[in-house]
């Protein structure tokens, strides 16, 4: 179960309004792509759903399976199954990937009232999921994202996604800065995680990721609002024609 309902969401950062009433409904297992020009509020929407403390919701709601998540702390949202694949994954020198995931997996299990995984079970899980993104096991010992290339960082995001088995996944420009091989690895990883029950928001500038991960719906976010929605064919049309033909793209705000 993972339906998401975003209603009339308004948000600002430092007093500047960035989202002007976003409405979006995602049913179980659906994949929604959000495209749009730079500065249209896409990343803000992603950060906001995850609970970034810098963004202030001025009105509206985000319901996950009927429960408003706006009152929840970021960790509580994660424990409820919200996962954000970061556009810029953060480096944490001194914390190994393996240790990071061990804390993460077990904290989420704890919130669900489950026992922590036994060392053996955890290792097995890590090995299995590392294969999803063709990640060498030496990565598990390295510090989180520390000194990773752009492509490695994004693969690491998808690896973590596989480890945590979330229900609602937001991918924030996971394809940016990836060459074609890395893009294929990342997309394959996501396709293995997809199980028909998890819901996705995929934020991207380009249609090419959507060739690998085919969305059910495509939305255009511009000026802090969704100005057009359609099927996966809309992404192709946007690729060809850009955003100008949709109008309303001039009142851009800072992301």
């Amino acid at each position: 179960m993972s339906s998401v309902k975003i209603e009339n969401l308004h948000a600002s950062v430092g007093g500047v309004e960035i989202l002007n009433g976003v409405d979006l409904e995602i049913n179980d297992g659906e994949i929604h792509a959000i495209m749009g020009p730079n500065g249209s509020g896409k990343s803000t929407l992603a950060s906001l759903i995850a609970g970034h403390p810098d963004y202030e919701v001025t009105s509206g709601s985000i319901l996950l399976d009927g429960q408003d998540v706006l009152e929840l702390e970021p960790e509580q949202r994660a424990q409820k199954g919200i996962f954000l694949a970061f556009q810029y994954p953060v480096e944490i020198p001194g914390v190994s990937n393996a240790n990071f995931m061990k804390q993460s997996v077990n904290d989420i299990r704890k919130a669900k009232g489950l026992e922590p995984l036994k060392a053996g079970e955890f290792l097995k899980l890590m090995k299995e999921k590392a294969k999803f993104v063709e990640m060498d096991k030496s990565f598990l010992k390295r510090s989180v994202n520390d000194g990773f290339s752009g492509g490695e960082k994004k693969r690491n995001e998808v690896f973590q996604m596989a480890m945590l088995d979330p229900e609602f996944i937001i991918m924030d420009e996971t394809d940016s800065g990836l060459d074609i091989d890395a893009l294929r690895i990342v997309a394959n990883g996501v396709n293995k995680i997809k199980d028909g029950k998890k819901s996705f928001i995929i934020i991207t500038h380009y249609q090419r990721l959507l060739e690998y991960i085919v969305p059910d719906f495509v939305h255009v976010l511009s000026g802090g609002k969704i100005i057009k929605s359609g099927g996966s064919e809309l992404a192709l049309e946007l690729e060809e024609r850009g955003y100008d033909w949709l109008g309303e793209t001039n009142d851009e705000v800072v992301a």
Partner: peptide
């Protein structure tokens, strides 16, 4: 880093301690 760790389900106090 703190937000990143919390987004992965690690509680604030623990994330701070780990850092």
């Amino acid at each position: 880093a703190l937000f990143y760790m919390r987004q992965r389900g690690i509680p604030l106090a623990k994330a701070r301690s780990l850092l």
